[in-house]
Design a protein around this nucleic acid. Structure first.
Length: 857
RNA sequence: GCGGACGUGGCGAAAUCGGUAGACGCAGCGGACUUAAAAUCCGCUUCCCUUCGGGAGUGCGGGUUCGAGUCCCGCCGUCCGCACCA
């Protein structure tokens, strides 16, 4: 595989060779230069046209673009170019999410400054993107690592501070010992740092936080209006925000622990309170901590609980374990009933009050635990007829009426919840409460390569914001990464400043901001970028919200939720009148590739193997190769394809075409060598076809071809708007097939010309070349989408299926809209139908106009 | 364990509202052109039965309907996400 010579190996003259083979090496560069010179894709802020803001998630400048970027940006590009053709003013910008750890890692490994590394990566990747011919407005390019971006971010951060949305608190944080940085809870995966993979330790530090929880309800409610978002993503955010309503109440302890006499718990099922058979607290609960001081066994158990990973999948399959404290709590309605108090490994301190009332009959976790420790499992909710049915190994969580439950007996679940909450509130030991799973956003990072947090610590004045006229607080350039930790802390001069308030010597904050802050407002800066402030309100509002945002589903929660929050926060303080930053969201699938394994189990790159007969072997050694699964491209599996290699071999258009073909964009796209070959063949087929644009035959019209053309124009427009590029591609193939078979005519010449316009958003270089070749006016990039004649969208004849008892027996072709009676007659007369009926008379005839006839005998 | 999505030829997939399943592409097979190859073009290509023509078929088992890939019930499988969420 990959053994066939590169298609571009043969020498060629100009962009058009003698056999009319398209030469992308020439054409790509030529048109890219012309688009640049003419500033074709620069968005005009003052335009009066309808506006489209098309945005793909900006890349991290890792050094090379990945084939996944190519897919992402090609999709956005087709939409952007199409929108231009239908007369929109399009904003389609690009930039760089340029702060972050890899730059510091590179600095440590390669002794290169993070800034130099990042800027050179940006230059490389920009060149790569340019080779793909994207219709981007490069005049608005942003790199978040430049002071003219992060300085404005500091200003916004100070605004949020003034509005009370920023605060500091000491809190236990996830300390990544490898990256020497703090990770948000959301960024810890399986107890490990999401980037470094190092086991996370707990440390207490003073941290900067953003009050995202203040907007929890609004962020949740806002999801309802996002009708152009995938349901999947909305659901993930909903679960992440995690609103639950229930009763927060206090159990009295039967004996005090130190000065603690009560246990505060939260339950979403207060209706089941009469079924409670024990209570459980987290290992880090104050009561547990107090008891552990005098109970070595408990201390050991608590330590074991802390070591367990935080990930659900890991923990949920683990065995439920508890430690009996020997204490009991007193049931609020049944003073005689004592519930034993356990420390349990399935209760989390971070959620609710870190304590639960356990109702084994109606909660599976509680039931598993009760079975293990032989605790009672009294049923208190039953469906009709189930009242005496014992609880087995499955908790009953369905609807029903309350039993064995005192004053709420006979009520349904919802009524009982309300009644218990009302009674608890009346008696003063509980309160109906809403709790959230969402926690405030910790934005401090103990890291150099990020936006400096613009504050100063003064012994006399405390924490003092840097005055806005002293922004940006720039990162010092002279830093070293010879030893781990934050270079800002050990810089000889940078952190030493005078306090803006009292003038006494003070110290700069050395934490920098989470890079998710950088990406929480870049789409606003794209829309408006004055020098003296982050953005102009009116200018930004002209473009926002982003009409179509496209990116990977891996950002479904963190980035998208933070950006939604940040935009709300800015709106809250009056900086912009937009709450939802992204009106439309599309999450594209990954690009995958087959994997190959040698007999010894090592992964092989596609270049290392070849096909001999029906089997794959290692080229050098002839060893047999096992075909692995089709998987996401990754360096470790050696199944990565470098976009640059492919572009050099086939040109940008074939690559773009392949990215759009076959697989629905939300699904994974398997990269195959034969697939890109096929795309390359089609690019050349189009090119040959465009060469026939001048052949008009006898200059007559071809009604069938006219119809096909107009149906295709209409269909493709709808497909592109729906981002169903694979369907648009299929329609292009169909049209090309029909045109190729048609005899030369004025209609055919017109169809070829229109075909160039239809493919222009997808294969723009080829389309420009063809457009120039056929004498089109101006650039095809500036041309209008071909108009549709509605009269040509409908066929005047239709083929109708004729079924007998639901089985297809024949088809008939009739005039569209033919009356039922006539259709019936023709159906009955169809030869195969007549034979099948064999004289039988249909009992019933179902006629679906213009679609089918079904005869029931 | 919980939540979600999906399951259609050898492969990627199409199939507005319940109305001709498999469009289009890839791979494969056969043919034309060529000294030969590449490129290109033409044809075939869900499975089974010998052809005309039938039969079966959208993960499995039921159901609703004149008619089910599509709707309902119950399974099975694959993938994705996850925070034991009380």
């Amino acid at each position: 595989m990959n053994r066939s010579g590169p298609p571009l190996a043969q020498p060629r003259q100009g962009a058009v060779d003698m056999q009319r083979r398209f030469n992308p090496l020439e054409a790509d560069a030529k048109w890219q230069r012309i688009w640049d010179e003419k500033q074709s894709f620069r968005a005009d802020d003052a335009s009066t046209k309808p506006r489209s803001y098309v945005l793909e998630m900006f890349p991290y400048p890792s050094g090379r673009i990945h084939i996944g970027h190519v897919r992402n940006y090609t999709m956005g590009d087709v939409l952007a170019r199409y929108r231009r053709m239908i007369g929109h003013e399009v904003l389609h910008p690009m930039g760089w999410d340029a702060f972050g750890m890899p730059a510091e890692n590179a600095a440590m490994e390669k002794k290169v400054h993070p800034g130099d590394w990042t800027r050179s990566n940006i230059a490389n990747m920009k060149a790569q993107l340019k080779k793909l011919g994207f219709a981007l407005d490069w005049s608005r390019e942003i790199a978040t690592c430049e002071p003219d971006y992060y300085g404005h971010e500091q200003a916004l951060f100070l605004d949020l501070y003034e509005a009370g949305l920023v605060y500091r608190k000491e809190s236990a944080v996830n300390w990544d010992p490898v990256d020497m940085t703090v990770l948000a809870n959301e960024q810890v995966i399986d107890g490990r740092g999401w980037r470094s993979g190092a086991l996370v330790e707990k440390r207490k530090l003073n941290q900067w936080f953003l009050k995202i929880t203040q907007f929890a309800d609004d962020l949740l409610e806002g999801l309802k209006g996002l009708d152009q978002w995938p349901d999947k993503v909305k659901l993930m955010q909903e679960n992440w925000i995690g609103k639950s309503q229930g009763l927060q109440f206090r159990f009295r302890l039967d004996a005090p622990v130190g000065d603690i006499t009560e246990l505060e718990v939260f339950s979403t099922r207060p209706d089941t309170i009469f079924g409670a058979s024990f209570a459980a607290i987290a290992a880090d609960h104050p009561i547990a901590l107090a008891l552990a001081e005098k109970d070595a066994q408990l201390a050991a158990f608590a330590e074991e609980c802390r070591r367990t990973g935080t990930a659900a999948a890991e923990v949920e399959t683990q065995e439920k374990k508890g430690y009996d404290t020997g204490l009991s709590v007193i049931h609020p309605f049944l003073p005689d009933r004592r519930l034993p108090l356990f420390v349990a490994n399935f209760v989390l301190m971070e959620y609710g009050t870190g304590a639960v009332m356990a109702v084994p009959a109606h909660d599976q976790r509680d039931l598993d635990f009760a079975r293990k420790y032989m605790l009672p499992t009294p049923r208190v909710v039953a469906a009709p007829g189930d009242e005496d049915k014992p609880i087995g190994e499955e908790a009953y969580t369905g609807p029903g009426r309350l039993i064995n439950s005192g004053f709420i007996d006979g009520m349904d679940v919802e009524a009982a919840k309300a009644a218990v909450i009302a009674r608890a509130e009346a008696e003063g030991w509980g309160l109906g409460t809403t709790i959230w799973r969402l926690r405030d956003w910790g934005v401090s990072r103990q890291r150099y390569w990020g936006t400096p947090i613009p504050f100063i610590h003064c012994d006399g004045c405390g924490v003092v914001p840097v005055p806005k006229d002293q922004l940006p607080v720039k990162l010092p350039e002279d830093v070293s990464f010879d030893i781990p930790g934050n270079p800002l802390e050990r810089h000889p001069t940078w952190r030493h400043v005078d306090c803006p308030q009292c003038g006494q010597p003070a110290r700069r904050e050395t934490d920098t901001l989470d890079t998710f802050v950088d990406s929480s407002w870049y789409f606003i800066r794209f829309a408006s970028q004055p020098d003296d402030r982050p953005f102009d309100k009116a200018e930004a509002e002209r473009w926002l919200p982003v009409g179509q945002y496209i990116g990977g589903v891996e950002h479904a929660i963190l980035h998208l939720l933070y950006a939604r929050f940040w935009t709300r926060a800015l709106s809250h303080i009056g900086l912009i009148d937009v709450k939802e930053p992204f009106a439309g969201l599309f999450t594209q699938g990954m690009v995958t590739h087959e994997t190959y394994k040698a007999p010894d189990g090592r992964w092989l790159a596609p270049q290392e193997i070849e096909k001999r007969g029906d089997v794959f072997v290692v080229s050098d050694t002839g060893e047999p190769v096992t075909l692995g699964r089709v998987e996401k491209m990754s360096k470790s599996k050696k199944n990565v394809v470098d976009p640059d290699d492919i572009i050099d071999q086939y040109g940008a258009d074939a690559v773009r075409w392949f990215m759009l073909s076959d697989s629905p964009p939300e699904r994974d796209l398997p990269w195959t060598a034969s697939g890109i070959e096929g795309s390359w063949r089609f690019v050349n087929r189009l090119w040959r076809l465009f060469g026939e644009a001048g052949e008009r035959g006898e200059d007559g019209s071809d009604k069938a071809l006219d119809r096909k053309l107009h149906q295709t124009i209409d269909g493709i427009a709808k497909d592109i708007e729906a981002l169903s590029f694979n369907k648009a591609v299929a329609k292009i193939y169909e049209l090309a097939n029909v045109i190729e078979k048609a005899a030369p005519s004025a209609s055919r010449a017109e169809a070829i010309r229109a075909l160039a316009l239809l493919v222009a958003p997808m294969v723009p270089h080829l389309a420009e070349e063809a457009w120039a070749d056929m004498g089109g006016e101006g650039l095809i990039a500036d041309a209008a989408w071909p108009p549709v004649d509605p009269a040509l969208l409908v066929d005047d004849e239709v083929t109708i299926a004729v079924q007998v008892m639901g089985k297809l027996r024949d088809t008939i072709t009739v005039a569209k809209g033919l009356p039922k009676a006539e259709v019936e007659a023709l159906a009955l007369a169809a030869p195969n139908v007549a034979r099948t009926l064999d004289g039988a008379v249909p009992k019933k005839i179902i006629v679906v106009p213009d679609r089918l006839v079904n005869l029931v005998v």
